[in-house]
Nucleic acid binder design. Structure first.
Lengths: 220, 220
DNA sequence: TTATGAATTTAGACATGCCTAAAATAAAGA
DNA sequence: TCTTTATTTTAGGCATGTCTAAATTCATAA
């Protein structure tokens, strides 16, 4: 069973929207992610349901199946391997690679991906720090550290929070330290363990040791 | 003005069918080349005519325009650069690369091609010995030598004949030494200058110096 | 010059993937 | 429970690119 480029893109979006939660994903959310209209999404969900890569109950959103997850991870694997290629071999900057990888990921050739993987020396993470699934869809989680344990000049990406209270999340949102933000430790104050952080290469912000201890980071 | 993958493929086919001759290319020939039906070709010719990459007079075949030639050569450039990448970097065999390159050539990113070209060290020929057009569409013709001038162990590809009489072409066809065949000189007889040739890595054949002098080869 | 046959084009269908507008459904509040 | 509102689906249309079958055009040979 082959999938079109559009089908692969929808499945990838559904996979990403499913990550973390166990709840079904809504038509509206998929439409927003794919930058299409809900009506187009309904059409596609019927098709993906027929192919049994998602479980689709009209009006109740979708859940991705095991088969669907496997497929999505293969596409993600290809995307991330190409990103490594573009950065490591062709000198692209890490923030220039996404669009091109979005096209390259749909090339159909298992041999190509196998050879590319070997050529890149079996990388485990892409230039954004995201893990590259292996050919079976298994991913190696990158070890997380609390932000307050990082040293000056180390960089990474915020991936989670320990305290997910609304108040804390509101605070993070306010200062611009969202999940996914790329950060660098500019300074650490000996006296109280507070930190100065550079967010997304532009904004600096100060936070107490207690706040930093609640933020989980993967280092890069 | 952007072109779809299908349009690019048709234009490339028309370019190849135009090579050499100055005559227009027929709908039937394009259909054969593209493995589609003449009716589908007619549809596409109208579209390509509207875009002014071909000159299309109903019932009289098509001629490619200068703009069309430029576009076709860009696609061919991408195809051949990817072939070099697959063979030089990913250890593909020269006869395994065509299908994959056929997909890769449609990736839209001038920067990618520019970087790939540099990374491959600005190759002038692809693994089949075909010239790679530069970014302006100019091609460097590979120098041709008569087969009888080649030395033992040298390899190349038959690209033309000096004597194109029907009798000679019939002879070539009979022994399997068609235009495009990849050959290797296995032995040369001092006494009469006759040669032993390996064709397409499987068939060996003997030919006189006079026959060999009529066969033009690009060396690889 | 006209008829015949081959090449080509047109007409009408179908699949994919998108859209807008209208209808149907679910969920939440009175 | 009933009604309102937001979400979702369906209906119908459009563009691309394919097909078969029918109509048209060209070119050749009687």
């Amino acid at each position: 069973m082959t999938m079109t480029t559009a089908e692969e893109n929808y499945l990838k979006a559904i996979y990403h929207l499913s990550e973390g939660g166990t709840k079904s994903v809504s038509t509206n959310d998929i439409a927003a992610e794919m930058k299409t209209k809900p009506a187009s999404v309904s059409d596609m969900l019927r098709k993906l349901g027929d192919k049994e890569v998602i479980e689709y109950r009209k009006y109740y959103g979708v859940n991705i199946t095991e088969e669907g997850k496997k497929r999505a991870l293969q596409t993600i694997r290809k995307h991330r391997l190409w990103e490594v290629f573009l950065v490591d071999k062709l000198q692209f900057a890490w923030d220039e690679v996404h669009e091109v990888a979005e096209e390259l990921e749909h090339i159909q050739s298992p041999l190509l991906i196998q050879r590319l993987d070997a050529y890149l020396n079996y990388p485990k993470f892409d230039p954004h720090g995201d893990p590259i699934p292996d050919e079976f869809g298994d991913v190696r989680a990158r070890p997380r550290v609390a932000l307050n344990e990082m040293e000056i000049d180390q960089t990474g990406q915020i991936v989670a929070v320990k305290d997910s209270s609304a108040a804390f999340l509101r605070y993070l949102d306010k200062v611009g330290a969202y999940i996914g933000a790329r950060i660098k430790v500019l300074d650490k104050v000996e006296f109280d363990g507070s930190l100065e952080i550079l967010v997304d290469q532009k904004k600096t912000l100060f936070m107490s040791k207690d706040v930093a201890a609640n933020i989980l980071v993967i280092q890069s």
